[in-house]
Design a protein around this nucleic acid. Structure first.
Lengths: 123, 123
DNA sequence: TCGACTCGTTGACACTTGTCATCGATGAGA
DNA sequence: TCTCATCGATGACAAGTGTCAACGAGTCGA
C-alpha cells in the first residue's frame, strides 16, 4: 500500500493543491481544465481516484468538499527523483549532472547556481 | 510518432542491449529473466513491442534474430531526465541538487564528485 | 413545495502495461 | 523424409490510465 503511484494526469491536480490548499473541486477545475483541455468530468474522476489512493483528503464544507494533499510535494518529488537516479544513474547524483553538462544543457546561470550550492554544502 | 514511450519493463531489455549488442533473444533472456522473475514469454513480448516501437532493430542471423538498440541510451536518459526536471524543478538543475542536499541524501563522495565536476565545468 | 441546479459517484470505453501460454513455421537430426 | 525442438508471432487477460457523460441526492430560489 506504500507504493500507491500518482499518475501523470493526477499529478497535475496534486500540483494545484500543493500550490494552494484547501481547494474546492470548482477551484481545482479553474486551475487545471483550460491548460490541459480537460472537461469537468475528467477532473472529477482524477479527484476521486486521488481520494481512493489517499493522496488527498476531503473535509465537508457545507454541501461540497475542501480537498487538501495528504502526500507532501517534498515526498513526491523525493521519490520520483530518487527513482530516476536509481534507474538511470546508479543512484548517484554526479553522473546526472555530468550528463547535462556533457550535452550542453547547462546555462551559465545553472553553473553559477550549482557552484554556489556546492560551496554552501561543502561549508 | 516521435513520442513513442519506452515502458519500465521494456527499459530493462533496453539496458541489456545497451550493455552489449547485438544479442539473440536467448541471450537477452539470460540477462533479464532471473533478476526479474520473468518467463520467456514475457521477454518475447517485450522484445516484439520494442520492435513495433522502433526502439530496437533486428537482423536475421540464420533462423533467429540479432537485436540492437535503435535508440541510444544517451537519448533515452536525456529525455527522461529532462522530463523530470521540467515536471518537477521548473527545468533547472540546481533545485534538484538542492533537494537532495536538503534531504541529506548526499554522501561525502557525492559532494566531492559534484565539487570536482563543477570545477571542471567552470573551467 | 417544486423545479432547477450543483456536486460527487458511477459506468463506460479505448489504450497501455505487465504477464504468460499457445500456435505455426522452419530447420536439424534420425 | 518424418519428427521434434526452437523461435517468433499472436492471443489473452487483469490492472491502470486518460477521458468523458449520465445519474442521483441534496439544496436553493421562486
Amino acid at each position: 500500500m506504500a507504493g500507491m503511484k500518482i499518475s501523470a494526469a493526477e499529478s497535475v491536480v496534486m500540483e494545484a493543491l500543493w500550490r494552494h490548499s484547501p481547494l474546492t473541486s470548482e477551484a481545482i477545475m479553474g486551475e487545471v481544465c483550460e491548460p490541459n483541455a480537460w472537461t469537468e468530468g475528467t477532473v472529477k474522476v482524477l479527484i476521486s481516484r486521488l481520494l481512493k489512493k489517499k493522496a488527498i483528503g476531503a473535509t465537508a464544507e457545507g454541501r461540497r468538499y475542501l480537498y487538501s494533499p495528504l502526500v507532501s510535494r517534498e515526498a513526491y518529488v523525493g521519490s520520483e527523483s530518487q527513482g530516476l537516479l536509481d534507474r538511470l544513474f546508479d543512484g548517484r547524483l554526479a553522473p546526472l549532472v555530468a550528463h547535462f553538462s556533457d550535452s550542453d544543457k547547462l546555462s551559465d546561470q545553472d553553473v553559477a547556481d550549482l557552484k554556489a550550492l556546492i560551496e554552501k554544502i561543502g561549508k
